[in-house]
Write a protein that binds this DNA or RNA. Structure first.
Lengths: 346, 346
DNA sequence: GGCCTGCGGGAGAGCGCTCTACCACGGCTG
DNA sequence: CAGCCGTGGTAGAGCGCTCTCCCGCAGGCC
């Protein structure tokens, strides 16, 4: 920066008032004579004044940012860490999270700082960053159920909110979906369509959400006399969906309905089914989960169980806000309802 | 925060030295007696000291963050702005940008704060944020050639680096790809494969990159006697790729090779070709652009022109670093070479 | 022995803001 | 008319750090 930036002091001198008065009109606090307000505003205009965030933060002990951290449980090298970021955002799910978070933050002039915590080192850094006051709190999206970050955050008594209930209980607020209901919705739809030989591709079974979706799905099928449902475990990626579908098809070639635990795997499953000469949905009905962007761009467009990710993310941001401001001291848990979206694949 | 966080002062008292000495060992500056260093480090350990970023920023006039802004040229409402974020990240391209940027920033303990500038209001906010010292500079990825943000940034003399050359020249550094060479690569490959009736789906022709890819493509075909190449304009999305391919196919049903200006559109094109009974690559060869994650997950896997997005993004971050530190004062322009990646679609 | 040099450490002045006193003043009440 | 507010402004003390001076001291040189 060449010319020194103007300070409150400069504006005050220019307007012929005190520093405190300028501060008041900038922050819109207490009564200030409208005429003087105008005077000050004009002086700000003339000087091109921009309040110094660091100085403000120093005294208010509040930043204008929250950390948005995507964390795993790994022990990856730096190179892998780098790939982690790329991989994470290859799933449209995270884009929706970002959208929802920004939707809440922007109107409040707050901003997310993006952090990835796939290594122990990176996790320490996240905690350090928050402790140093780099951000007021953390929004955490774990990609792994054994992620140690939530506990670290809780131990350090840092404001944090999680996306999805952690595998081990942690005294932090979180938002989540009624996954079990989602599984039920999928089963109901497949049954209503007349499917009789139904299988499922689950997410990683270490993830609570995967288990719940499966449980709800099985439960409903069982109520209609379907037991021993074929199951293959996937990893929430297109590739893993293909592998799981291949496996399923090998053992149960007569399948006429499949529920996959997310849309990416549904996409993979459809591809495999096609390669094996099955028409979707005519021969085999496929139902996904999430209602992500791929659900509408792939062919056939996916029938899927919608997860209102944007709203969930926005709620996460709101909860964090509450914690930061001290409006909420006890951990809260907000559960959203899934919704069936019928398109072409089932 | 319940207990007051320990300050430099506290550590100094605990270690029996002065504030300055503690500051020196924390920042690893100047010579400090190893014995005293140890003393101080132990005191830090005991007190659980974490340096206050705001205070440091106030005096050093440097933050540990840069803004990573995705900007458009629109005049969208807030709701649309929200969707903008979601939409942007639906393209795997941005995930790669984030990955590359973080790859450079993380080892330097810096972090990107994510900003979206799709409205005039949002653009003003980005500029204000930087002027207030919220971040040291900006990495800008425009989704639109007429994006006014770069000029705003340049006018305010804020450090900024762009991804891709702007439509109108702006005195800012940028990274870019030799798009024309990319177009040539695609044409060469299609010709070598024996394609004779070749068409192309371009990106938005207002975007310089789209025009250059087209130019390189046409140029090479012309050199081999192919003129009057069928062209349909797309918008870099799957849907637009479908629409463009439909159009192309209607007028030129005998096409045996297609170059699409990104992988998303290639995916759409393949879908349409299939629906019209064409086998890919047997009947029609399709070649994409970017080498994004969809290139390997869709079927057939895409032959594509690789854009080293991660490296480009990392370089962008490095350039910004240079500008911020004052190591570089003149705008630089770093151009990367595209590379052909042959898979199954052509 | 006097002087210079270099090293290691301390003192203290800010950085630019917020916010809690505190004060001046005019109009009302008793 | 003394006293009491409410209103609208000022003064100034920090917030926690960095960094420039400055000083004491040991060692080398003449």
């Amino acid at each position: 920066m060449s010319r020194q930036a103007p300070t409150l002091e400069d504006v005050a001198r220019e307007a012929g008032v005190s520093r405190a008065t300028v501060s008041r009109v900038v922050n819109g606090v207490r009564n200030v004579d409208p005429a003087i307000q105008d005077l000050v505003r004009r002086a700000i205009e003339r000087t091109g004044y921009a309040p110094n965030q660091a100085a403000r933060q120093l005294v208010t002990r509040r930043t204008t940012t929250v950390a948005l951290v995507v964390s795993g449980a790994g022990d990856a090298s730096d190179a892998e860490q780098n790939a982690f970021a790329t991989r994470v955002f290859a799933d449209p799910f995270f884009g929706r999270v970002v959208g929802g978070v920004v939707g809440h933050l922007r109107p409040r002039s707050m901003h997310p700082v993006l952090m990835f915590a796939e290594t122990p080192e990176a996790r320490r850094e996240v905690v350090a960053y928050l402790r140093q006051g780099g951000a007021d709190g953390a929004l955490v999206v774990s990609t792994h159920p054994e992620d140690p970050l939530p506990e670290l955050l809780a131990d350090a008594r840092l404001p944090a909110v999680l996306f999805a209930r952690p595998a081990r209980p942690v005294p932090l607020s979180h938002v989540d979906l009624a996954h079990r209901d989602g599984g039920r919705l999928a089963a109901d739809h497949l049954l209503a369509r007349g499917c009789r030989r139904i299988g499922t591709v689950t997410g990683p079974l270490a993830v609570p959400a995967s288990r719940e979706r499966l449980a709800g799905f099985r439960e409903t099928l069982a109520m209609h006399g379907h037991t021993g449902v074929p199951v293959a475990e996937g990893g929430f990626t297109v590739d893993s969906g293909m592998a799981a579908m291949t496996e399923l098809l090998a053992e149960h070639p007569d399948l006429d309905g499949v529920f996959t635990a997310n849309d990416l795997m549904a996409q993979g499953a459809v591809q495999i089914l096609r390669e094996h000469g099955r028409r979707v949905p005519r021969d085999v009905a496929v139902i996904g989960f999430d209602d992500s962007s791929v659900a509408v761009t792939c062919r056939p467009r996916l029938t899927t169980v919608r997860q209102p990710v944007e709203e969930m993310a926005a709620t996460m941001a709101r909860l964090l806000d509450d914690h930061i401001r001290g409006d909420r001291t006890e951990p809260a848990s907000v559960i959203f309802a899934p919704e069936l979206v019928v398109r072409d694949s089932a």
